[in-house]
């Protein structure tokens, strides 16, 4: 059980860390100053969640690893984030759709996790829920405006939906690790969140006059460390400081 719980919390931490890192890549490159700050704010929310989760994962593991060791000093195959969050920023539509898929999942996820029998996870969930509710609002409003905007913004957003659609299903997977943690009253039944995710996505896509993609393909593997080619590149940048100056702290 400690091993499953460690992996479970690490998966959650890695999701927030990698997506936060992706959003950080927009610094200095966002389409407008206002959106630059919005993306950075969301990234920092996620980084804050990741820090709490890494610290807790280190406590569960009990081998003296803290947030920095877990965040910066693991090889690629030991990162357990979903493939969705490591996908490249692409154009603005890809970034927004990726955020929208993630936030539409995290709102019901944290909401359910707030009832966890684990006090630490329940507290992290309560704090994170307020943050992701804003992420969902912000990304939803953008999806609606991009879809219902110009012919080009509509086309790019529809392309982004098609490009990322097959990565969404991994969020709802319940493998042995997730089942064990859920059955002990600590974890969330992610598969049960699918109807709410569907309802959120359908409502926003309808307002955006976008078409829900067909479930024609799906890809997973991130939860067991099998990543797309993109993660290695993220890690080379993310880990640079700790690799170059071991033990560096602020």
């Amino acid at each position: 059980m400690p091993d499953a719980k460690f992996k479970y919390v690490l998966r959650l931490a890695d999701d927030q860390l990698i997506l936060g890192q992706r959003l950080g890549e927009w610094c200095g490159h966002a389409p407008t100053l206002e959106e630059e700050l919005a993306l950075a704010n969301i990234g920092l929310d996620l980084l804050g969640q990741a820090r709490s989760l890494f610290t807790y994962a280190g406590e569960i593991e009990g081998k003296g690893r803290g947030e920095d060791e877990l965040a910066f000093l693991r090889p690629e195959r030991e990162y357990l984030n979903a493939l969705l969050v490591e996908q490249p920023n692409g154009d603005f539509a890809v970034t927004i759709v990726r955020q929208f898929f993630h936030a539409a999942f995290m709102v019901p996820f944290w909401s359910a996790m707030a009832a966890s029998s684990d006090e630490t996870l329940s507290a992290i969930a309560a704090k994170s829920l307020k943050e992701v509710e804003y992420h969902l609002r912000h990304s939803s409003e953008w999806v609606i405006r991009l879809g219902d905007g110009t012919a080009e913004s509509h086309r790019r957003t529809q392309d982004a939906l098609e490009e990322l659609w097959g990565y969404a299903s991994e969020l709802f997977e319940m493998d042995e690790v997730a089942l064990e943690v859920q059955q002990s009253g600590i974890g969330v039944d992610a598969a049960a969140l699918k109807p709410e995710w569907d309802a959120t996505v359908n409502a926003v896509l309808e307002r955006a006059s976008l078409t829900r993609p067909a479930d024609s393909w799906s890809q997973s593997g991130g939860r067991t460390g099998q990543h797309s080619e993109h993660l290695g590149h993220i890690l080379s940048e993310l880990q640079y400081m700790q690799r170059t100056y071991p033990g560096l702290s602020w």
Partner: peptide, 20 residues
């Protein structure tokens, strides 16, 4: 001040730019 497409986005941008 800030730039935004409409009132809802202006309110969100105001939150993100001025209440950090």
């Amino acid at each position: 001040s800030l730039h935004a497409v409409d009132s809802e986005m202006a309110l969100q941008a105001a939150r993100d730019v001025y209440t950090r």
